[in-house]
Amino acid sequence: MNLAQVLFYLMAFIATASAVFVAATKNLVRSIFMFFITLFALAGLYVLALADFVAITQIVIYVGGILVLILFAFMLSGKETLNTIGELRSKFISINKLPALLLAGLFLVVLLNMIFKLDADNLGWVKKAQVTHNMILPNSSMTENIGINLMTKYLLPFEAISVLLMVALVGAAHLSRKGRSA
Rank of each mutant, 00 (worst) to 15 (best):
21 F>I: 04
145 N>M: 14
66 I>E: 01
77 S>L: 07
161 I>G: 07
65 G>T: 05
138 P>G: 11
122 N>Q: 06
38 T>S: 03
42 L>M: 07
24 A>L: 08
48 L>T: 03
95 I>G: 14
162 S>M: 10
101 L>G: 04
107 F>L: 10
111 L>H: 14
130 Q>P: 15
165 L>G: 01
39 L>D: 12
59 I>W: 03
83 N>I: 14
141 S>Y: 02
39 L>S: 08
24 A>N: 04
114 M>E: 15
76 L>A: 01
43 A>Q: 00
143 T>M: 02
83 N>C: 12
64 G>K: 00
50 L>F: 15
85 I>D: 09
147 G>I: 05
122 N>M: 07
147 G>Y: 06
126 V>C: 05
63 V>K: 00
51 A>H: 07
76 L>R: 01
111 L>K: 09
70 I>D: 08
93 I>K: 00
102 L>E: 05
91 K>H: 13
103 L>M: 11
31 S>V: 03
165 L>V: 03
107 F>W: 12
144 E>M: 15
160 A>P: 13
103 L>F: 11
27 N>I: 07
54 V>G: 02
69 L>T: 00
110 V>C: 12
49 A>P: 04
82 L>S: 05
22 V>G: 02
113 N>P: 08
110 V>P: 12
66 I>N: 01
33 F>I: 03
89 R>Y: 05
121 D>I: 05
107 F>K: 09
163 V>Q: 07
24 A>E: 04
131 V>L: 08
43 A>M: 00
142 M>R: 14
87 E>F: 07
101 L>M: 05
73 A>Y: 06
90 S>F: 13
56 I>F: 11
128 K>C: 09
